[in-house]
Structure formats: structure tokens, C-alpha cells
Simulated assay, not measured.
Amino acid sequence: MSLIIRVPMIGIFLIFILTGCSSIKQEEESIPVSEIVSARTVNIVNGKGEKIGKAVLTEEKSGVRLHMQVSGLKPGSHGFHIHEKEFMGTDFQTAGSHFNPTGKEHGHLNPKGSHMGDMKNLMVKANGEAKQTEFLKGATLSKGDAQSLLGRSIIIHEGTDDYSTDPTGNSGDRIAGGVIPK
């Protein structure tokens, strides 16, 4: 009788293994490989040029997913945007305005907004670290495309973006950033 019980248990175990554990829930952040078009990694530096983190941008069918991980920042909420140009050295001002190929106004709360480069505030924990994922609908990582993020900058601001004041969200000085490779 113990053989009869073991055979079905072994069979169930083998079915579970051979079907790839399909009952295990996938993480929300996983992206099927078939949907990834292109990807770029961006080093994030502070005003001294010291690397404080990185961002990984992955083009999907309907836009670009940005995964940001940084440390060494002041705790709290920081404006966080894609800017129109690459900055020079550590002069984040040279990154220009927010990336806005569709001519909208700034901010998620602005009835005339928002810029394609507008993202939610970067939430930095008490230990100075932040991990955040954003999705930029309609953006690409394709050379020559008007909505491409290639050659633009990711900029972190000193203060909180109010999501409505045009053109910058009243988020203060630019304190860190990274250039998205072409």
C-alpha cells in the first residue's frame, strides 16, 4: 500500500517540476523577454562626479521602463525628470529643460501636462537610499526617433516636485544626474 501512495506523490512532484512551477506568482516587475526592444544602463553621479547609483532603462512595446537605484542623497522627496540634453561634466544645468517632445506643460496634476520626462518624486529613505521604477509611456530608445531618450539626461533635484508648476515643478537645484548613452 505504501508503494501506491508513493507513486502518485512522485507523479505529482514530477508534474510540478516539468510544468515549470507555473503556479508560482511572478514578480510585478518582470518583463517577458519578447517585449524588450532595447536597454541602456546609466551611471548616476553627484555634483562632485562621484557615482551614487545607476538607472536601467528598458524599452518595451509602449514605452520605456526606468529602474533607479541611488544612495548618498538627503532623505525625503526629490523631483526626478528626464531632461532634453546630455549635461557636460557635472554641470547639470547644461541638461536643458525637461524632455517635452509633445509640447505639454509640466506636471502630473497640470490639466495641460505632463512632459514626457516628468516622473513621480524620487522617495529617498532615512539611510539616503532610493529604489524606484517609473514607466515613460510613448518614449523609446530608438536612434532618430523624436520621442527617444537616447542622449538625454536623468536629473535628480534638491526638492519635491509639486507636479503642477510649469516648467519645472518648483523642485529646486539639480543635485545629481546621469547621461543616457546614445
Rank of each mutant, 00 (worst) to 15 (best):
F80T: 02
S164Y: 02
K85E: 04
T160R: 03
E28R: 09
G96E: 10
I154G: 02
S22R: 11
E129H: 11
K125Y: 00
Q132G: 04
E129A: 15
I4Q: 14
G72C: 09
C21R: 15
H108Y: 11
I154S: 00
N100C: 12
G96S: 07
T140S: 13
S171I: 05
I154H: 00
T41K: 06
K85D: 02
Q132H: 07
L14W: 13
G159E: 01
G63V: 03
S30V: 14
S77E: 08
S71D: 07
S97M: 12
H83Y: 05
I12M: 15
K51T: 09
M88F: 12
V56Y: 05
M9F: 15
V56C: 04
V64K: 00
I82G: 02
G53K: 07
I12L: 14
F92Y: 13
R152K: 14
V37L: 09
S153L: 04
P101T: 15
P181T: 00
E134T: 06
M9Q: 15
A176D: 11
I10R: 04
K182F: 02
C21N: 15
M1E: 15
V37Y: 03
Q132I: 10
I12H: 07
E158C: 04
G107C: 14
I175N: 00
E105R: 12
K48D: 10
F13A: 12
H157S: 07
E29W: 14
I24N: 08
D173Q: 09
T94R: 08
K131S: 14
Q132R: 06
A176M: 08
I12S: 12
M1I: 15
K25D: 14
L3M: 12
A126D: 13
I180G: 00
L109H: 12
G159W: 03
G96F: 06
V56K: 08
F80D: 03
D162S: 11
D162H: 07
H115K: 00
K112E: 12
D118E: 10
T58A: 10
F87R: 11
V70M: 04
P8T: 07
D162Y: 12
K51E: 02
Q93P: 01
E27V: 12
K74Q: 11
S34A: 11
F16R: 08
G49H: 06
F87N: 12
E59D: 13
S171M: 07
T41A: 14
S171W: 01
K48C: 03
A139I: 04
E86K: 05
N121G: 11
R6H: 13
N127L: 06
G20K: 05
R65W: 12
R6T: 15
F80V: 01
T140F: 08
A95Y: 01
T133W: 05
